[in-house]
């Protein structure tokens, strides 16, 4: 029975697990502009050994164990998943839409940045 998260929270704080949980929930609710939702988590699923974990979506949960269980139920219930990651949405640092010009445009008009730009001489092996 997995309860490590709840126990860690209880151990790390003089208050009960619930105190910690509601503090987290409260802080999150504030950052969501008074919305009383639980914290948001991003879910990544892996479909086969060696394949990358890909973003599947997001969900709400009070802690990591619950996020993992919810991810299992929401994103893995119809099979095709062998591994799950859950990450607090707040832990993601994203590029700003306003910066997309300096960030991404320079790569758009330089064909020589792509391998296809270069012709492979006949007879070259192992490319």
């Amino acid at each position: 029975m997995a309860s490590t998260v709840t126990n860690q929270q209880a151990a790390a704080s003089p208050g009960s697990a619930a105190t910690v949980t509601s503090a987290v929930v409260g802080a999150q609710a504030e950052s969501l502009g008074g919305d009383n939702q639980w914290p948001l988590w991003e879910v990544f699923t892996q479909s086969e050994q060696g394949a990358p974990h890909e973003h599947a979506g997001s969900l709400h949960a009070v802690d990591a164990e619950q996020a993992l269980q919810n991810a299992r139920d929401v994103y893995a219930r119809r099979g095709g998943v062998i591994s799950l990651w859950v990450i607090p949405s707040g832990a993601i640092t994203a590029s700003a839409p306003g910066e997309s010009g300096p960030f991404f445009d320079p790569g758009a008009d330089k064909a020589y940045r792509h391998p296809q730009f270069y012709k492979v001489p006949r007879g070259v092996r192992g490319v």
């Binding site: 029975m1 309860s3 619930a18």
Partner: peptide, 21 residues
Amino acid sequence: RYHVRHSGEWMLKLGDGTEES
């Protein structure tokens, strides 16, 4: 085994949760 992981985790959260839970 998954069912008990799910309900067991909720028992911990509700029991060790708020006064009302």
